[in-house]
């Protein structure tokens, strides 16, 4: 894991690379989130200074788009597809079950920092509906009964 200083050096590099292209703010923020995992205030300040825009503009963009997050996410991000195809095939029940098993509301991270429950719009895997992803793993044709076992698998992996 690179320490904070290294991360800020990386960010400065990204800013230097991109700042002359038109509309650089969002690409820089996307890269910054890749480096830090989220966009806390001190990162936003560096971006604002580096690109010569106001902090309010950076904050405005960060809070407008769903992809940007100001707080760190869990180690495993659970994205439950709530596209129409998944919804008509029962995605809501899968989501409710996850919320029950993880004991967190939608959009929040578990107290142990392990899971973030993230309802998402169409993942585009409608043939597998209802579908969810846990980081890069895809789970399709889900029923609520599948959920406890899947979550247990990740918890066991962490304890091991």
């Amino acid at each position: 894991m690179p320490d904070m200083k290294e991360k800020f050096d990386q960010l400065q590099q990204v800013i230097a690379e991109l700042k002359d292209q038109p509309g650089a703010l969002m690409p820089v923020m996307q890269k910054a989130q890749g480096i830090f995992g989220c966009l806390p205030m001190d990162v936003q300040k560096v971006i604002a200074e580096g690109l010569g825009v106001t902090l309010s503009e950076v904050y405005g963009v960060a809070t407008f788009y769903a992809q940007f997050t100001l707080e760190p996410s869990g180690k495993y991000i659970i994205s439950v597809c709530l596209g129409t195809a998944c919804y008509v095939k029962g995605a809501q029940k899968v989501l409710d079950k996850l919320s029950e098993v993880l004991e967190v509301p939608f959009g929040k991270t578990t107290a142990d920092g392990l899971f973030t429950l993230n309802p998402t719009r169409c993942l585009g895997a409608c043939g597998l509906a209802p579908v969810m992803t846990i980081n890069d793993d895809v789970y399709g044709r889900l029923t609520p009964d599948d959920i406890p076992g899947i979550i247990a698998k990740y918890r066991e992996k962490e304890q091991a």
């Binding site: 509309g23 969002m26 690409p27 923020m29 996307q30 407008f64 788009y65 769903a66 992809q67 940007f68 719009r121």
Partner: peptide, 8 residues
């Protein structure tokens, strides 16, 4: 290419 950031 420009990437969106999750806004319909």
């Amino acid at each position: 290419i420009r990437l969106g950031a999750g806004a319909f």
